[in-house]
């Protein structure tokens, strides 16, 4: 049984937005822990969060000063900004609403409940006191939905497009995490070098990668090792390499995947070249930038091959 392009596209976006909601919650949560550990005067600026999540235009529309309160208002509770957690959840819900018949029965209920929860609780979760509980709940509910799909969805087209969406979003978010570290450290004076490991540690936590890193690399956290781990760890499912390899596997099962596979091939070769070489901060920043461009090319190739109305 084939699948309507429109349905495939909605499943793909549902999955991307769910992953985005979860990952944004993780990043905000990790940053939140970090700022409490860092000595006064060395705090990373909140504007980095805005930059990392491509939120500048929306931020500038609503606020003039960059501070914790405003950034969180935008990222947690703004229904209209595509970078916010509530927006991502709403959009995921709208996409499930019209595709529920190809998903396990409980999917719609879980996503709908998550959306009701976010609408109700997000506005009161901007302050430091309630923030953590809200973010943790969002992460846990997203994981429940992912678990349901993993355990009950037939391995057909529906599963494939959901998986592609999740993997691509996950790879994208991992590269954004690296950018947080690079961007922050580049701006900070040398006298605060001592807090670097704290920062990278927090980023690992943001990817739920802290314990995997410790077991594979060891307890010492430094920039080069974290970058290598996040990009190249062969067995960690949120590493960029792992995501790209899985994307390649899923693409191979679809008709008409030639163009998309070519883009994946280019991404793969770039990852191979990254191999363990030491890079300056500026070089790393450029690398991440270009890598994100390639991921966006991959999205366009997927869109052109399976979603676009004018292709046939």
């Amino acid at each position: 049984m084939s699948m309507l392009s429109r349905v495939a596209e909605r499943l793909y976006w549902m999955s991307r937005y769910l992953e985005r909601a979860e990952d944004t919650a993780r990043i905000v949560s990790a940053y939140n822990h970090l700022i409490m550990d860092i000595p006064k005067g060395a705090e990373p600026g909140w504007d980095i969060m805005v930059q990392i999540l491509d939120a500048q235009p929306h931020f500038e529309q609503r606020f003039r000063t960059v501070n914790e309160q405003n950034v969180l208002k935008l990222l947690v509770a703004d229904n209209k900004a595509p970078c916010s957690i509530t927006y991502a959840i709403q959009t995921a819900r709208e996409n499930v609403r019209t595709t529920r018949d190809v998903l396990p029965e409980e999917t719609w209920e879980l996503v709908n409940e998550l959306s009701l929860f976010a609408q109700e609780v997000a506005p009161n979760s901007v302050g430091r006191r309630n923030r953590h509980a809200f973010l943790a709940e969002v992460i846990s509910r997203c994981q429940t939905i992912n678990g349901l799909l993993l355990s009950s969805l037939s391995r057909d087209h529906a599963y494939r497009f959901i998986k592609l969406g999740r993997l691509l979003e996950c790879a994208d978010m991992a590269t954004r995490m690296i950018d947080v570290g690079v961007g922050d450290i580049a701006e900070r004076a040398d006298r605060f070098r001592a807090v670097d490991p704290l920062l990278w540690g927090a980023l690992l936590q943001g990817l739920s990668a802290a314990s995997a890193y410790r077991r594979e690399v060891g307890p010492i956290v430094d920039r080069q090792a974290v970058v290598n781990f996040v990009f190249l760890a062969p067995a960690f499912p949120r590493s960029v390499k792992f995501c790209i390899r899985d994307i390649r596997n899923e693409l191979g099962k679809l008709n008409g995947s030639e163009e998309a596979l070519k883009v994946v091939g280019r991404i793969w070769r770039r990852l191979q070249r990254l191999n363990k070489q030491a890079m300056t901060q500026a070089e790393l920043h450029t690398f991440v930038d270009e890598f994100q461009m390639q991921l966006s090319n991959l999205h366009e190739a997927i869109e052109a091959a399976w979603f676009r109305a004018d292709r046939q």
Partner: peptide, 29 residues
């Protein structure tokens, strides 16, 4: 649609080809 095992489509899912046949746009063409 579910009761008949039929596809539920919207206007944008369908198009008419040069052969005057109606087609739905699927991921397999």
């Amino acid at each position: 649609a579910q009761g008949m095992g039929a596809e539920l489509v919207e206007g944008i899912d369908l198009f008419v080809g040069d052969d005057d046949c109606v087609y739905m746009r699927t991921v397999d063409g």
